[in-house]
C-alpha cells in the first residue's frame, strides 16, 4: 500500500498576540491509501489544526508533512491550492455557499478545477444522487436540513475525485439518526470506492467504526490503535 499522508515531528505554533500557542507538538503519523482513520480528543487538543495541515489549508511551523509524497511546508500558495484541489474537505459548519443551490455548490468545486459545464452538471447530478439528494438538487442550503447540507458537502468534497477525504466533525450538528446515515455513506465511499478517510469526531462510538483511532491530547498523539 502507498502512503498518502506522512507526518514527522509535525509542529504548529500559533501566535496569540505575543503568546505562542502550541497547537501541535511533535506529531508523527502515517496514513496508507484506502485507510479509514478517526481522530478523537478533547476540545483544543489540535484535531482541527492537524486536519487543516493535511488539507493544505495551512503550513506547519516545523517538521515534515508529506501529502501524496509532496512536502506541504515547501509549497507556495499556488501549489498549495493545487494540492487542495485533489483533497476533499468537509467542515463542521457553514460548509456551503448560501446563495448557490446544492447542485451549483457541487459544480463550483468542479469549475474551480476547470471542468467544462456539461461534464460538471452531469457529475454533480450523479454525486447528489449517490448521497441521496436527487430531489433536493435545486434547493439552497437554507432550505436543507443540517444532515442534507452535510451530504451536499460530502458530494462536493468528492467532486474532483480526491484520493482522500478529510471530515471535521461531519456529524457534529445532526441528530443521531442522520449521523448514522452520514456514517454509512462514508463507510460506503471507503469500502466501495477506495477513498481514504480521515475523520475528526467527538463521538467515541462513531470513532470506533473506523479501522483505526488516533487519540490526541494537548497537541500530541496519545494513542494510535487499530479497532
Amino acid at each position: 500500500m502507498s502512503t498518502i499522508v506522512e507526518a514527522i515531528d509535525l509542529r504548529k505554533t500559533y501566535m496569540l498576540g505575543k503568546v505562542p500557542v502550541e497547537a501541535l507538538r511533535g506529531v508523527n503519523l502515517k496514513v496508507e491509501a484506502g485507510d479509514f482513520i478517526s481522530i478523537l480528543g478533547p476540545s483544543g487538543s489540535g484535531k482541527s489544526t492537524m486536519l487543516n495541515l493535511i488539507g493544505a489549508l495551512d503550513k506547519p511551523t516545523s517538521g515534515v508533512l508529506r501529502v501524496g509524497g509532496v512536502d506541504i511546508g515547501r509549497l507556495n500558495d499556488n501549489h498549495l491550492a493545487e494540492v487542495r484541489l485533489k483533497i476533499g474537505f468537509v467542515f463542521q459548519f457553514f460548509n456551503l455557499i448560501p446563495r448557490l443551490s446544492a447542485k451549483a455548490n457541487v459544480e463550483l468545486a468542479m469549475s474551480i478545477a476547470d471542468m467544462n459545464s456539461a461534464a460538471r452538471s452531469k457529475r454533480a447530478a450523479g454525486l447528489l444522487n449517490a448521497v441521496g439528494l436527487k430531489d433536493r438538487m435545486y434547493h439552497k442550503p437554507a432550505e436543507l436540513s443540517g444532515g442534507q447540507q452535510q451530504r451536499v458537502a460530502i458530494a462536493r468534497a468528492l467532486a474532483n475525485k480526491p484520493k482522500f477525504l478529510l471530515l471535521d466533525e461531519p456529524t457534529g450538528n445532526v441528530d443521531s439518526k442522520t449521523a448514522t446515515e452520514i456514517m454509512s455513506l462514508i463507510h460506503k465511499l471507503n469500502r466501495e470506492h477506495g477513498v481514504s478517510i480521515i475523520m475528526v469526531t467527538h463521538d467515541q462510538k462513531l470513532a470506533s467504526e473506523a479501522r483505526r483511532t488516533v487519540h490526541m491530547v494537548d497537541g500530541e498523539i496519545e494513542s494510535d490503535l487499530v479497532n
Binding site: N78, L96, I97, R156
Partner: peptide
Amino acid sequence: TREIGILKALGMKSRT
C-alpha cells in the same frame, strides 16, 4: 470572509 475561505479550501487560487 467565510465564503472566500471555502473557495480557497476547494482549491481556488489567490489570483482567481
